[in-house]
Design a protein around this nucleic acid. Structure first.
Lengths: 633, 633
DNA sequence: GAATTTGACACCTAAGTGCAAACT
DNA sequence: TAAGTTTGCACTTAGGTGTCAAAT
């Protein structure tokens, strides 16, 4: 990482090798993958513990099968190592939170995230935009949600306050973005959304959703792993990004009327998250919203008039975002007294207008139906970046203050002793690997089929099949598809869903018997040593049999980004980064909404809400014909 | 197969071993799976050709990793072989086509299946009910659609007629049911639907849809493979069932007004396929439909009244289905003159009524909106079976005449020399394996990522990870989830989709260069020898790198059937076979619709249509709260 | 009684569908 | 022209969403 200033807090760790992902021994690869190779074979734990050179994993397509690989062969394969991107990659990822302004607004009120038995998506949706990746290298993007503290909360007297110690946490799943692995170019092409991740309070959930405790505070986390195969996940460097403003309290029903009623109300716009979901680039939210209003009320739905509208609506910007306290006490956040009628914006979105199409028009129309007075969308986080193209692209140090670093921390458990250079942060912000458990624990109980998919080693197993992935150059071996499959989850699938999948049923039915293997994340005494990611006490490659469920997007556009030369790169694609970057602006600093109005000093929650409403409106109006990196379905 | 009389034509073949799937050498397994195990390793083709004892593939969860397996170890693992179901399984699958009556009706008119660029589902949906499977053994269910002949057709003067020789066929994909593998019990619990399979005329389709030629005739096929791992697919016995009445002509727009207008019309019920999709048990279609009508028009939506409705609507049966000619000339089919007002049915559905729930009620209500006069659903194929429980379950010889056998035939290409005992049928009815191609063909072109998923060997690769699957006993190793993932496709996923996936992009862009590897199925000269399934000219286990895309159902109910003890077996599940079987009736014979009205002698197409309408109506009304085996999404 | 949770509801979008007009 | 295909349209279901009342 050339630039220590990330758009969030980043930290990397290297399980079994130093800081050179490219140097991990082949033995690790084999050990992790082998179990799947010989599913029914009981092999000596130490059989593959001795390091084996990394052969680049290429050429398998033309190869036969070798139970054991000779060094000679290894050397031969090394020549094909060019397919392995890690070797020469020197990326410097920059991650920015999409709709940061919206998140900030919510955060000030005390973000509430509804969790339901059937599973609920997040709102605001967690989306990030990435820059600085190696275009050709392949990356796996992940996200998880961990406890933000060890407190239970209650909403009393219109504010959130601590109400005791936190209840035990259910094991958290690591959600691998369905498009993983994909090239840096593909990831950077458009915002990466994680709307498929669902939250639930059903401890018996079999879909693989993230189980949260109601009235508890959580912190979403985003991870970047440069790896062309899920198989390598546990042995790769994790770059973790935490955006404090995305912290939230899980609730089964909205507690703060300010959020539930005012923010979401407006006739009946219960589905704006859907619009939002489509919002790949918030940089154009405002414009789009205004366009909608104008189009629907004073203009036609034609595209040509959009630019003009931008001018008209330029004033409706969100209040300048002030730094947000990363920790609770959100009930005391300041509010603004600016009426939502302010209209100050810029017409910098004009460029993107050219990208709009009929689909957009239709969406806009629909979205407009739910918009009325709240039309003037507030500035959205992305909009800031939209005006500092260079900064956002690769040179900007960051749009986030160093203070964000405080939010990042790996658990102090076994994990930290291996990879937690910053284990000083919130003790409850565990690293994904911490949730993995020894496969035997499940398999011995016959509950394997109930496990959520993709535990650390499990991912490897699946990935092993497709193990190829060639980072940049067109991959001559069709393996990455498998990886993609493996990497995807989120789609309602009984037991699987992501990494470190704890069988919910297991938790409920067999917890007593195997509690030691499935302790809550907050438990410092949990046997994380069994975690194949973190532990070395057992055959370190002891595979984790849990599978990765695959949820594939229905729209081809989803995969477009994954397949070189596919739709994502088509000329007609409206989500190409070039056009977007063009709109970037806004340097670092904690303030969002590059609005020209300095009325950032909020005064009361009423205006606070109005600001949020503007943001939301913007999101609603703004839609991405080409869905973001997350699957549209 | 104890009983040669199947509900369709069944034939089995055994690629590399005799007729005992359980005896296939481990070497085959390893060879096929290995590539995925060592994706990047270029190994000598013959490295693993020497047979290795089948170790039962169990115990991997507790095993370490062994590049090479000693015989000693193998012996040790053999003790865990109990997990392998194939050993003692002696099933006798009986397959009945769901909604056979409807299919018959369509067939008489000349079934047309719309294909669109964006992909279209089949209607009627291809669903089958299975009996006679080993409850505990695991099976993989597949379906494909192959050319029915080598002719091109045209709809002229209200009838279909040959219009020349067929155009070259695009490679056909093998669609693996998303729930595969699952236990026989799970498969038999409810009808198995394949509505996820989509048809398209877009030769560049990247979703993995089945590409058909417009104005050409096709024949869907259903396959049962007893295997607990996709890995074993190519080395397992395929039981293929062909229902001649499901033959259809692919069209981009309905040609026969009788079908398009009359059949689907009715105010606006363009989405009845959706209803139909939910119809797991057609045995209750009529009842449900009527119930809906009554409930919505004269009654409440409460469940208790259903039985009564059955009585009231008992008369509305479909005309007794007469044997349908399995081959074209459908323009001359007879029709009926019975008005759709007939109402004769039975109240045998009462039992199932008890299974309905609120969800059903809601569905019913919705469905009713589209129903009016066509409420009296005609008898549906399943309804026949529904009344002959014993027959259908395991003892009924079959509901299909031996004549169906004529439709079954494997291609006369390489495949037949290995597995085609009945290679006398339609030469164009290829076996799935025939469409597989050498992996190298694709990998060498760097098009791997564009390949549709799950080629024969490919499936193995993926499956290798999860390779366990224990058939009957609760699987102590959580592998089958992975298998499930791998087995599923259908969800819009760019390049993948099923077995023998030919990269559409590849076809379009590289066909010239590698045409030899991707010849149309109808080409007898195509290099099918490269097919890992059929050829022995190359290292027979030369893996096929193509991956299996995974489409996971959004509703947990989908997977319910896959996970022992999960939702499918819940008391609340409305789709349990016991209750359903109870409604069975109607013995064999080609006639469908166990209607008491003997007006089966159709006279004109008008009445023919009416009959179909009744059937469709029944389908619409009938819905399965618990979706059929196919994923609901 | 208060704090939460649950389920029914109405609303909306996304996607599937047949149709008719436009297009090749 | 005619045959066949493509496209846009209206319509429907399925599923996501917040609200509200009832249950816990």
């Amino acid at each position: 990482m050339r630039d220590p200033v990330f758009t969030g807090t980043a930290m990397a760790y290297h399980p079994f090798h130093a800081h050179r992902p490219t140097d991990f021994p082949m033995s690790a690869f084999l050990a992790a993958a082998q179990p799947s190779f010989f599913p029914a074979l009981s092999l000596p734990p130490g059989a593959l513990t001795k390091p084996i050179p990394d052969h680049g994993l290429a050429g398998a397509a033309e190869a036969g099968l070798h139970p054991a690989l000779s060094h000679h062969q290894a050397a031969h394969l090394r020549s094909m190592k060019s397919l392995e991107p890690e070797e020469e990659v020197d990326d410097d990822p920059k991650v920015t939170l999409e709709a940061k302004d919206l998140w900030d607004q919510f955060h000030k009120l005390g973000t509430e995230m509804v969790i339901t038995k059937s599973g609920r998506r997040m709102f605001p949706p967690f989306k990030v935009r990435i820059n600085g990746l190696d275009k050709k290298a392949k990356y796996i993007l992940l996200m998880d949600i961990v406890a933000a503290d060890d407190c239970r909360y209650k909403f009393h007297n219109s504010r959130w306050m601590v109400a005791g110690k936190a209840d035990p946490e259910m094991p958290k799943r690591m959600y691998i973005h369905p498009d993983s692995p994909a090239t840096g170019e593909q990831w950077m092409a458009k915002p990466v959304a994680f709307h498929k991740l669902k939250l639930t309070n059903n401890i018996s959930d079999k879909h693989g959703f993230t189980i949260l405790n109601s009235m508890h505070k959580y912190q979403p986390r985003f991870h970047i792993v440069r790896a062309n195969d899920i198989l390598k996940l546990p042995y790769s460097t994790f770059r973790t990004y935490v955006f404090p403003e995305t912290e939230f309290v899980a609730v089964t029903a909205y507690q703060n009327d300010k959020v539930s009623h005012h923010l979401h109300t407006r006739a009946a716009a219960p589905t704006w998250p859907l619009y939002f979901r489509k919002c790949g680039f918030f940089t154009s939210c405002k414009r789009t919203v205004k366009t909608q209003l104008l189009n629907d009320k004073t203009c036609t739905d034609s595209e040509p008039e959009l630019e003009h509208h931008d001018e008209l609506c330029a004033g409706s910007s969100s209040p300048g975002p002030e730094p947000v306290s990363p920790y609770s006490s959100r009930c005391e956040e300041r509010v603004r007294d600016r009426p939502s009628t302010d209209k100050k914006d810029d017409s910098v979105f004009s460029v993107r207008n050219l990208e709009k199409d009929k689909a957009e028009s239709r969406h806009r129309k629909d979205a407009t139906e739910a918009l009325t007075k709240d039309s003037e969308a507030g500035g959205i986080s992305a909009s800031k970046d939209a005006f500092s193209p260079l900064m956002v692209q690769t040179e900007s140090p960051s749009h986030f203050s160093p203070g964000h670093l405080q939010s990042l921390a790996l658990s102090g458990l076994h994990g930290q002793q291996f990879f937690n250079p910053l284990n000083a942060g919130s003790p409850l912000l565990f690293h994904p690997g911490q949730f993995a458990m020894a496969p035997g624990a499940f398999s011995a109980m016959g509950m394997g089929h109930l496990l959520a998919s993709v535990s650390g080693a499990s991912g490897l197993e699946n990935g092993s099949l497709s193990a190829q992935g060639t980072g940049g150059t067109p991959n001559p071996f069709p393996f990455h598809l498998s990886q993609h499959m493996l990497a995807s989850q989120g789609i309602p699938m009984p037991p699987f869903g992501g990494l470190f999948p704890y069988p919910y049923t297991y938790m409920a039915a067999a917890a007593a018997a195997a509690s030691a293997s499935a302790l809550p994340a907050t438990s410092a005494s949990s046997p994380l040593s069994r975690n194949p990611f973190l532990s070395s006490s057992r055959p370190r490659l002891r595979f984790n049999p849990y599978q990765l469920p695959v949820s594939l997007p229905q729209s081809s556009s989803l995969l477009a980004g994954l397949n070189p030369g596919s739709e994502s790169s088509k000329p007609g694609s409206r989500e190409t980064s070039p056009a977007l970057e063009h709109h970037s602006s806004h340097k670092t600093g904690g303030s969002s909404g590059r609005t020209t109005s300095p009325k950032a000093s909020a005064k009361d929650s009423v205006n606070e809400l109005q600001s949020i409403q503007r943001l939301v409106s913007g999101l609603e109006g703004q839609r991405e014909p080409s869905p973001t990196a997350d699957s549209p379905n």
